[in-house]
Simulated assay, not measured.
Amino acid sequence: MPANPSPRTPAWPPKSAPRLFVEDTLAEGCTIVLEGPHAHYLGKVMRAKVGDTVILCDNQTGEWAGRIGQVAKRRIDVTASERLRPREEVPDLWLCAALLKKDRFDLVLEKATELGVAQIQPVVTRRCVADKLNADRAITIITEAAEQCARTALPQIVEPTKLDNLLKNWPEERTLYFADEEGGGPVTNTFVEHSGPAAILIGPEGGFDDAERNAIRSLPQAHPITLGPRILRGETAAISALSVWMAVCGDWGKSDHSGKE
Rank of each mutant, 00 (worst) to 15 (best):
E23K: 05
N59T: 11
T31M: 05
A27I: 07
A65H: 02
G69E: 05
L42Y: 08
C57Q: 11
I68T: 01
H40L: 06
V45S: 06
D24S: 07
G51H: 03
A48T: 06
V50E: 15
G66W: 00
V33I: 12
K44F: 05
D77Q: 10
T25C: 13
L20D: 15
I55V: 15
W12R: 04
P10Q: 02
V33M: 10
K15A: 15
N59K: 04
D24I: 06
C57A: 12
T31K: 02
A39P: 02
S16K: 13
L20P: 00
P5Y: 08
L34R: 07
A48Q: 01
P10D: 10
K15E: 13
P13N: 11
K49G: 15
P13M: 03
Q60R: 12
T25Y: 09
P14L: 08
C57L: 11
R74S: 14
L42N: 11
V54H: 00
K49M: 07
V22L: 05
G51Y: 11
L20T: 14
I68Q: 02
T79C: 02
F21K: 00
Y41Q: 12
D77S: 14
C30V: 07
D58H: 01
K73E: 02
V54D: 06
A3G: 10
S6F: 11
G66Q: 01
G36A: 14
V22T: 10
E28N: 13
I68V: 07
A39Q: 03
P10V: 08
P86K: 03
P37A: 15
L84I: 04
P18D: 10
E35M: 14
P7T: 14
G43K: 03
P14K: 05
R47M: 12
T53P: 00
V33C: 15
F21L: 08
A3P: 10
G62W: 00
R75I: 08
L56N: 08
D24Y: 08
T25L: 09
V54Y: 01
G66E: 02
V78F: 02
